[in-house]
Design a binder for these strands. Structure first.
Lengths: 106, 106
DNA sequence: AAAATATTTCGAATTTTCTGGAATGATAAA
DNA sequence: TTTATCATTCCAGAAAATTCGAAATATTTT
């Protein structure tokens, strides 16, 4: 439940291109999708896509497994669910965690 | 439900300092908190804080109302709930919206 | 081992973000 | 109207993100 970890994930999804990539992974379901097909779908240069995928993987939101010459990418749903749970628990109206202790709550 | 709008909000929360600011706003509840108290709580220069608050307000996640010389800041819970709903609906395992239409789903 | 395919890493330019001191603007009190 | 307080805007430097062609790496096929 590290805040910096969650911030890193939010930042990863905050880039419109990466959000599009991540959504394509989600639509691909548990089977995932090869990098090449992602490239066709999103329409950006391979090197750019690779950088974005690296960021999504580094923050835990996605993973890759090699299948021959192809790299299959998958969304890590459990990590996204963690993130959503974090937002719901600590950033919404009825936030229960991290109760007010500072002078900022006056 | 504009994707760019949601990406903008995710980006806003993706900065650790801004996430801390936003969480302080949430902890302050519906009453909100003045900029000055936020500054005491977070411990950053006024101009830096002001920039971050401006970004949170610009993307809709927060708002400000003047009370005399004081500016009171509040989290916009409905906007955050929209964002969480977006993530749950389009970025999680059982995503129903935006069904697979592209070649990226093979 | 050479060729073909898939993808990453390198290198470098461009753009954007982040930061904070100084100046300015807004409001209230004396 | 002067003074004081609160907060933003201006300005500019430093750091980081974004982009993508070219070169390199990984794997399979012939």
């Amino acid at each position: 439940m590290d805040i910096l970890t969650q911030a890193n994930r939010l930042e990863a999804l905050g880039n419109p291109t990466r959000l599009a990539i991540y959504r394509a992974l989600v639509r691909a379901g548990h089977a995932g999708t090869p990098v090449g097909k992602l490239q066709d779908a999103i329409g950006i240069p391979a090197s750019t896509l690779s950088h974005h995928l690296a960021k999504l993987c580094a923050c835990g939101l996605a993973g890759q497994t090699r299948e021959g010459t192809v790299l299959r990418c998958r969304a890590h749903y459990d990590v996204m669910e963690q993130l959503v749970a974090f937002l719901a628990a600590e950033c919404c109206a009825d936030a229960t965690a991290a109760p007010c202790e500072t002078s900022a709550c006056g």
